[in-house]
């Protein structure tokens, strides 16, 4: 009984939501990017760049907002790099993506050294404070959802809704979905496919950067090397399992986050190492289960023309 209480508690719900934030943001970025026909294996690296950018921005200006904006900028730039490599120079998309991961991992360590004279971590900076929503926070039980939570939580939910609406209710979304499946059809319909691709990949980079900033200046208060720790790949898995649909991504991210939350919030009589594996094993199982069945953008990864 105690275990069930632990699992279905308000604490677990809040922990799940918090951990779902970076996964959701990055995986919606992945959705937008892949819908434009470009595979993005560089999510991990883009998130890492964002995490570093957020700390650096906060460190130099003392302002959390500047930190976040800087994370968006850095993330957007990694997105632009991926876009230029894939669209302008027709680099293999998987190579470019993995390259960005390696670049981000190495470059952030070098920059840590250059800025803070430290190996693989930064100095501590100001954290983004939580906010409370007046009125709503007074509601019994669920009031906790609106008390002292990070603004990222609400922004993320808003982004899920906006992304879904744009994807399925607007001309921009329809065009993007056509581009992912049949770029030539989109071109023949007068859509500027190249423009859509650049915008999508850069937007993906910005969302990943934003996700990364959550890890470094909300959940934590400093940058640590490789602090994304595979969440980028989990986000990619959420992109796929969610059927390249922002709402699906959100639900999958919640599932993965739930596994992470169990690890932290529930005391089980299982070796810690096994518990730590849980989110990753779950990701693998999910991908094995749906791998062949979900139908993604048909032309993703293929921009040979």
């Amino acid at each position: 009984m105690n275990l069930i209480h632990q699992i279905f508690s308000m604490n677990m719900l809040l922990a799940t939501l918090r951990m779902a934030i970076p996964l959701t943001l990055a995986s919606i970025g992945g959705v937008i990017c892949e819908r434009s026909g470009i595979i993005n294996l560089g999510v991990e690296g883009m998130m890492l760049s964002g995490a570093f950018g957020a700390v650096a921005g906060t460190y130099f200006t003392g302002s959390s907002l500047a930190g976040i904006l800087f994370a968006l900028l850095v993330g957007g730039l990694t997105g632009l790099l991926h876009a230029v490599l894939c669209i302008r120079f027709h680099t293999r998309q998987s190579v470019s993506g993995v390259g960005i991961n390696i670049l981000a991992s190495g470059l952030t360590i070098v920059l840590c050294r250059a800025v803070w004279k430290r190996d693989g971590l930064s100095e501590t900076v100001k954290q983004v404070p939580g906010i409370s929503i007046p009125g709503l926070e007074k509601i019994p039980v669920i009031g906790r959802l609106f008390r002292g939570q990070s603004p990222y939580l609400y922004i993320t939910v808003l982004i899920v809704i906006i992304a879904w609406f744009v994807m399925y209710r607007t001309n921009v979304g329809l065009r993007l979905r056509v581009i992912g499946d049949h770029p030539k059809a989109a071109e023949a319909a007068g859509v500027n496919v190249t423009k859509y691709r650049y915008v999508s990949v850069v937007l993906c980079g910005m969302l990943c950067g934003f996700a990364g900033s959550y890890l470094s200046i909300v959940q934590s208060n400093l940058f640590v090397k490789d602090m994304v720790a595979g969440r980028g790949y989990m986000a990619l898995a959420a992109t796929i399992f969610g059927g390249w649909n922002p709402a699906g991504s959100f639900l999958t991210a919640l599932l993965f986050a739930f596994a992470q939350a169990i690890r932290i919030n529930v005391s089980l009589n299982i070796p810690e190492q096994l518990l730590q594996m849980l989110p990753y094993v779950l990701t693998l199982l999910v991908l094995m289960g749906v791998g062949g069945r979900v139908r993604g953008p048909q032309a993703s990864g293929d921009i040979k023309d």
Binding site: L174, V178, D181, K184, A188
Partner: peptide, 30 residues
């Protein structure tokens, strides 16, 4: 207008979506 030998259609979308794409009635919100 040109009807290409290899269809320029997206299987996952409906007939109307395939037809109107690029020239959607209603502006931003279709």
């Amino acid at each position: 207008g040109m009807v290409h030998q290899h269809f320029m259609l997206v299987d996952a979308l409906s007939v109307w979506e395939n037809v109107v794409v690029g020239l959607e009635p209603g502006g931003f919100r279709i």
